[in-house]
Design a protein around this nucleic acid. Structure first.
Lengths: 248, 248
DNA sequence: CAGTGGTCTAGACCACTAT
DNA sequence: TAGTGGTCTAGACCACTGT
């Protein structure tokens, strides 16, 4: 299992620096599930011995993976595979504006529909890297805060990738479920934001007039090796939902 | 001028590690304009001697500032104060979707109105950290791509901070002007996105029906020491304007 | 050529965590 | 007390840049 990891690094050609090669090996090992989310990695000096490099070089590789969000470290404890923190709420992959303190923000999730589609839209199939005819699981959910609808979302998954997902409690956050039940770990997400007019369904669900402006977020979620895990469309009520970004 | 920089670091108390202290000193020096945008900093070993620390410690400090976007380094050349790259187009602080290759994206900017306000909205004054009665400069501009309006924006500046800005060519990008003429360097920006209905003015300017959905971006731009430089509202045409983010 | 940052090593000592 | 990552040092050699 660790055999690939132990193979000698390329110290001659030097097309990639050693710490990059270590980083690549570690990332591949994570993708192969050598260490599961939450588990501890070997220590710096241990990894240094395995790769036959100094701890400083291991350190450079590990810190790069920490910056990418794949690992976390805690002084005195060790280096761990990053995991979705259920207590983190919507901080990492959601950017609601919070007028109330984070602790008071506990939206209620209502599952509206779960369906297996045999003929999903071509754009969805393409994003999920599926062929025509492949089955797609769609999940429609509504989020409410204090009984008021905030946003409505439709998630699409490759049916084959998440067997029996519908037997889970889908009114919880989906990403911890994916991690715990299917070993599918969210690594990053791309989002495209637009303003659109609410159609009949969106207007009805969000309790606003048809053609009211809503924010549409098209999200693509990736796991290791740039594999697409989910694509999702979220419609947010313009008076309850805004999106915050810091640019550097 | 460099006197503060040369002062001994705190090696005893150790509330902050040395590399953080070096980072703070460098950041303060940048804020004081000790080195202007585009200029080269002393070498690692030079800085190490000044601060009486090893080059590895200087390196840690400098790399942190590179990650924050305040410095850039080029192998074989040196470390430089980051500057707004006019050829960078909208890559850094704008996130248009580009259906065309970046090279083909050259929006035309039309200046609609430049005005000095004696009584700006309280929210604007607050964001700009001004008192009631302080003068605010407002600039309304329209961006067109191939003769079609894409977005409309209103920028607000503290009048006193940018004297005679209106005598510049405001159909160019504003941030290079601020840097070159006023020594005001953009360090970071916060943005809040919402979907709203176009009012009469926005509809007319963007050539869309009143009440059509548009994306509203409220941006606050900061220079060194978290000083607010500009606040801006941008209204984007929903069919021409979308916003892309990568989350990690 | 001399000077720069990029990479890498082999240590040292510290603060934090758990037992 | 033992083990972890966090910080720091004082070198070394390399690749790249400009003269």
């Amino acid at each position: 299992m660790d055999a690939d990891i132990e193979d000698a690094l390329d110290t001659g050609g030097r097309d990639r620096p050693l710490y990059r090669q270590v980083q690549d090996r570690l990332q591949a090992a994570l993708a192969d599930g050598v260490w599961k989310p939450g588990e501890m990695l070997p220590t710096e000096s241990d990894l240094g011995q395995r790769f036959q490099v100094s701890t400083g070089t291991v350190r450079q590789a590990v810190l790069a993976l920490v910056r990418e969000g794949l690992l976390t470290r805690r002084a005195g404890k060790g280096t761990f595979v990053a995991r979705i923190d259920p207590s983190q709420g919507f901080d990492r992959f959601f950017r609601f504006r919070r007028d109330a303190p984070a602790a008071d923000f506990h939206p209620q999730i209502k599952v509206l529909d779960v369906n297996t589609l045999c003929r999903a839209e071509p754009s969805i199939l393409e994003t999920l890297a599926l062929a025509p005819g492949d089955e797609v699981l769609s999940i429609k959910r509504l989020q409410l805060q204090d009984e008021t609808p905030v946003c409505f979302s439709i998630s699409y998954f490759s049916r084959a990738m998440v067997p029996l997902l519908e037997s889970e409690n889908l009114s919880e956050r989906l990403y911890p479920i994916l991690e715990e039940r299917f070993g599918l770990h969210v690594v990053r997400a791309d989002e495209l934001l637009r303003a659109v007019a609410a159609d009949e369904e969106v207007g009805r669900l969000l309790q606003i007039d048809e053609k009211s402006p809503v924010i549409l977020i098209e999200r693509t979620v990736y796991t290791y090796r740039d594999r697409v895990l989910e694509c999702r469309k979220t419609y947010g009520r313009s008076d309850k939902f805004s999106y915050k970004i810091q640019l550097r």
